[in-house]
Write a protein that binds this DNA or RNA. Sequence first.
DNA 1: TTGAAAGCGCTAACAG
DNA 2: CTGTTAGCGCTTTCAA
Lengths: 344, 344
Amino acid sequence: MKSVTIYDIAREANVSVATVSRVLNNSAPVKESTRRKIMEIIERNQFQPNALARSLLKKETGTIAIILPDITNPFFPEVFWGAENMGRELGYTFFMCDSAGDYKRESEYLGILRERRVDGIIFLGGRINVANCPPHLVQEVVDLSRHLPIVLVNGQLASSGLHRIYTDEAKGAELVVRHLIELGHRDIAFLGGLEYMNTTRVKVKAVRKVLKEHGLDLPPERVKYGEFSIQAGRALMDQLLASPKRPTAVMCVNDFTAVGAVKSASEHGLRIPDDISIAGFDGTPLSEAVIPELTTVSQHAYELGKLAVESLHKLISGEKVKKQAVLEPRLIVRQSTGPVKKVY
Amino acid sequence: MKSVTIYDIAREANVSVATVSRVLNNSAPVKESTRRKIMEIIERNQFQPNALARSLLKKETGTIAIILPDITNPFFPEVFWGAENMGRELGYTFFMCDSAGDYKRESEYLGILRERRVDGIIFLGGRINVANCPPHLVQEVVDLSRHLPIVLVNGQLASSGLHRIYTDEAKGAELVVRHLIELGHRDIAFLGGLEYMNTTRVKVKAVRKVLKEHGLDLPPERVKYGEFSIQAGRALMDQLLASPKRPTAVMCVNDFTAVGAVKSASEHGLRIPDDISIAGFDGTPLSEAVIPELTTVSQHAYELGKLAVESLHKLISGEKVKKQAVLEPRLIVRQSTGPVKKVY
DNA sequence: TTGAAAGCGCTAACAG
DNA sequence: CTGTTAGCGCTTTCAA
């Protein structure tokens, strides 16, 4: 089990470790014949340099960590996949940290990652998505960011000056509402999402704005806050349908809740979109897998991951990077929304 | 940006680095007063020991890597989530490596992980799931396993003697077929999965076996091989439905293909399960998200991840571990399967 | 083109 | 209870 080191190679080749190091890194010219001899010995011994030792010296590890709130939500694997594909080419390996959206876990990971000397961190969810993040939690991230680059994806930390990549969710929500209005809907509800999370607030605000432009409004009973899960979507929709007069269209905070809403609606005997239109958000693969396929808004998850790594890499290399990169959301009209049915 | 080291702390506290190290690791008694002083200085400087240096010395990194074929397939996040929850308590951090099922990428990662001196590897998909894995690819893993523990999840490497955790897929397939037969189905088809992958073969074989027990068989035209995606499921189902006489029930290789099959069937105007029963496999969250909810077989993905880490940890700690751990699959009957409709 | 030697930051004997 | 010291495996001057 004794692992072979650069010394073993050097000894066997009758050269110094410096020379072996040189052929390993191509960091200086080495006589062709010695190079070949060394290479041969390396191959034969299946020698692999110890990345820890190298990192200790070079002060860079070639690792990036991604902290996210829920890997089982299909939006995040998509982001990761984008990040990894970009990162692999640049030579990075990824630590995956599922925080479950829990501040404590986030802090825990932040500490661990610092100890492990990752080259950078991509942060999603949790504290960067709440309306009023406790100052010490903001500070923690800001402090860390003085040691290593951090990129926030789809979130922010009040006046932290951290780099951000995000999709314009307000714009996305507007797209959905305009689409619904064009279809003739006048009674639109908003469903899902915790009230104190930004992703929820931003959307509700945008919905209000667009409705107002059309002389419509969003009364309190047409907004149902809750979790982001399928279950929550279903329960919330149940509530909505329990009211005497039901809306003709529902915009959901994400695809999960939309799926739940669809379930509830069909359990209530409603046909979608004939009896009620339901729209999701995120454009996850799930939205396409469901029947009926969901009208939703693509957040370009893959792209977000890719861009995050790209920025991070530049930051790591000391290049100048724009503080913010905003992606345009894209409305994807599918089967779950349709013209309002006139009832005379 | 100069990072503070144990030396800085020692100097400021007027003690030796050894003492600082002792309070850091609680590895030997230290006078309470000095301990407090040192702690205070550590806090004030936000000192975090460099894990690289420690790992270099201790020959253990506290990292586990998980190699899997497709993080966007909801089965795998579930496995990861189980692994992480178990691993976090044991002090591990996770490298996530999406191989895309590509042997080249797998090899690439295997090399990188060795260099990074991960404490262990959890391997899923790709080469451990094909019927005839090229010997050099087997050898590569076996070689590596002499340097660090490797656990194969839901797969195997011919006579490699590697540790394995898996769900009994044959049993799972049997469960589905028996369920279908009980419902009165006599014409059952199998859909999806590459023919050369074990996960496909095992299931087809099991289906044949059970059908035979009941005096039935699985003619070639009732088996449609293909990818594991939703798209594949849909295309394959289209083929199946193009035949003059369609089966009354379809068992799919996984939930993705089942979802595709459901789509195709409903596009063809068939009601599920009244006109045709469709069953999935894996028990992913997707199977429950979809409408109608899928009858499927739970592979206990979360549990697989948990167990994998548990074994790995024991292996790492030098404890004795069973070569194999087999989980019992569980049939989950939901809405996509029902009694066969008698047609006279 | 090559070698000697000084660390990177930490832990673990070994002495005291 | 505490300090000295020898590495862990590698890269990188500085000389030769």
